[in-house]
Design a protein around this nucleic acid. Structure first.
Lengths: 252, 252
DNA sequence: TTCGATTTGTTCGTATGTATT
DNA sequence: TAATACATACGAACAAATCGA
């Protein structure tokens, strides 16, 4: 067996990580470096096998893990593609706010404000930036069925999004993460949300059409790209009159 | 190839589902019927292969899906086991309530009440019971670090848990789902939680040590066993002073 | 419309590595 | 040490979907 002899004679290489992990890491690097862009077809499995000097089965195992992580998509007869942040995908994977009947809908967005600012301590920590680094501070109101439901305040590193203007945001066509991907080649692959309940202040209540002091969900979200590099931090307030947050545990 | 000839000559059989799906379904039936109990080792892969008349690779694919669904666990050198609802497992898979620093801890529980009752319309619908069917109605207060944090009201079909008494509940040693599994052989494999924010009423606030009207999380959970059969319905109120709900999106 | 090339999906078989008992 | 069990890796064949000539 070829690999065996390489291991025993050649440079040792960590014997702990199997071949397919190494291949997977190389594929991930191609994604991180932007050699394969979103929506593109990656090379066929036999070609990748020859290129990496491994069998097709090994390629399939590496690709299979990236598919399980929602990074690649296989389509029989067509090829394997880098996942795009289409509306459908965002709705299914990155949004868990649903109506009381379980329905999901794409919200309409209203840009309330976009300004340059300096990161406060907490934001800098979450975005892994230096204290008081330049950030963009964007506030958006999201409506479902014509009613305001979500008040979203997002902060992103200014360095990641050069020349971003308010009009770009307003003119955009799909979701915010789709916009990041289209315009800046930044693909969000993972997000964490920490949810608490708070009473809405006067301003928030007015924007959401609630009485001041109403209980609302407060969602703190941090989103990251391929190598766990933070992309944005958001605080969302959600009016719970007709909507809530759906979470599935166990066999997801 | 043997399977090919069977497909073309023998009885047609749905060509849509591949062999490993059929094997997976048969394995799931063994679990549902209680032939393999929690914690037990299932037969080795070569043995299962012979028994089902397929190759080891096909067995591995079927078992792999059940592992991905947190139903089986593989341990190299030892075997494959039916997952047990140990404390660690419950904490990691079926609990998303964490401290503000991300810490998870096992709560201490206080039984507030257990009574037999009839299901209201909504509960009957969620548990797929007849209207006004007999249910057990259990109220529990869960404390973390000595402070009350979660007020839990659970309703289960009385038929599923014959002869259940309050003492059994109080004397139990681990989590509720672990108790179900140990005492009744019922394994919860999946749960859905619908989360909103509400203001605590006077009684709830008093139990949780909050001022009346404080914003709290309200979690409606339905849990199901192997074939999506509902096991329990719960309403939980969570005090958000030092805790919140953690959710991960994307590559889970 | 048909046919053939391409690509992923399924299934088999075999050999070897690694962890456990 | 030996036997057992899962993990990795290779190779091969055919099925099914897609797409262009």
């Amino acid at each position: 067996m070829r690999m065996t002899s390489e291991r025993t004679e050649g440079e040792p290489r960590e014997p702990r990580d199997p071949l397919y992990r190494l291949v997977k890491q190389q594929l991930t690097e191609a994604l991180r470096d932007g050699r394969w862009r979103h929506g593109q077809k990656i090379p066929s499995e036999p070609l990748l096998a020859r290129r990496h000097g491994v069998s097709v089965a090994t390629i399939r195992k590496a690709v299979g893990e990236l598919v399980a992580e929602n990074i690649l998509v296989r389509e029989q007869g067509r090829g394997t593609f880098v996942l795009s942040h289409t509306r459908d995908y965002m709705l299914n994977v990155f949004s868990r706010i649903v109506g009381r009947d379980g329905s999901k809908a794409l919200p309409t967005t209203t840009l309330l404000g976009l300004r340059r600012a300096r990161a406060d301590t907490e934001t800098a920590r979450l975005l892994r930036l230096k204290p008081r680094a330049a950030v963009l501070d964007v506030e958006t109101l999201l409506s479902l069925d014509g009613r305001p439901v979500i008040l979203d305040r997002m902060r992103v590193p200014a360095a990641l999004f050069p020349d971003l203007a308010a009009e770009d945001f307003s003119r955009r066509d799909g979701t915010i993460y789709g916009f990041f991907q289209e315009q800046y080649g930044i693909t969000v692959v993972r997000a964490e949300e920490f949810i608490t309940a708070v009473s809405a202040g006067p301003r928030e209540a007015a924007l959401l059409g609630l009485r001041p002091g109403s209980a609302v969900l407060r969602i703190l979200r941090t989103a990251t790209t391929y190598k766990d590099q933070p992309v944005d931090v958001r605080v969302r307030l959600v009016a719970c009159g007709a909507h809530g947050y759906l979470s599935v545990l166990g066999q997801g």
